[in-house]
Design a protein around this nucleic acid. Sequence first.
DNA 1: CCGAATCCAGAACGATACTG
DNA 2: CAGTATCGTTCTGGATTCGG
Lengths: 139, 139
Amino acid sequence: MDALNSEARKENENYLTLQELLHVKSDLDESCILHQSLSLIADKWTLLVLMALMQGTKRNSELQRQIKGISPKMLTQTLKTLISYGMVDRKAYPEVPPRVEYCLTEFGISTADPLTALLNWSVAWEEQLVKLYKEKVAR
Amino acid sequence: MDALNSEARKENENYLTLQELLHVKSDLDESCILHQSLSLIADKWTLLVLMALMQGTKRNSELQRQIKGISPKMLTQTLKTLISYGMVDRKAYPEVPPRVEYCLTEFGISTADPLTALLNWSVAWEEQLVKLYKEKVAR
DNA sequence: CCGAATCCAGAACGATACTG
DNA sequence: CAGTATCGTTCTGGATTCGG
């Protein structure tokens, strides 16, 4: 268990560990880059919309169908936020009935990297996590 | 740019990509393991408390000083949640005045792995992210 | 020193109905 | 089909006060 220093992956010269970050700046607050980036994508639907678009360009109604339980309002709102972030592109075709397509930008695609790491951690601790989540929503 | 399939890291047999996850289950909702694990740690202070404890065992008052802007209530509450998750251990010494120490469990330490990935993504896109965060809090 | 209890403001989210 | 507007609820987090 060498998670803290992640030596295994440090072949890459530019790889930065949490310890190194804390060494540079041990005061912790909202200016922490980790806190900032997490707060941008950590709401109820953003993650799911990003994942759906990882499969490729989709229309509004396709997203609506694929993402169970999302309301039209929240879908639109989440997409608008992601567009303002520069993570999603919107293309509207001047047709009747209207057709609108959404796809990820390069920046949007880049989120796959940290999300994949989170996925593999989640799978490794899945039993624990699922139990905790159930308890959480039970409240 | 091969973020979606992360071939570079697939030397590891067990490595799972987002595409593979979506292939197994293309319906997206709150049962998605990624959504569940993210929702457990994605609140205002959890991340900062975890990071502080990555440096080692600490007392309540040390955490209070190091984490700028956190109120005693939110510190206690966040610690209690992390203890209930099994990510943090609490040791109380029967002294006067009381002394209480907190440290990470193996599960807590394991969060360093996804967090380090998020950190390196954040640093790669730092300029973009900091700008977006500023706009977000301005609202 | 450590933490519990209470009250409250604001944000996030959901349901519904409506427009081009 | 895509998106907007309005309203109401729920949840989060902050301020303050009190107790062991």
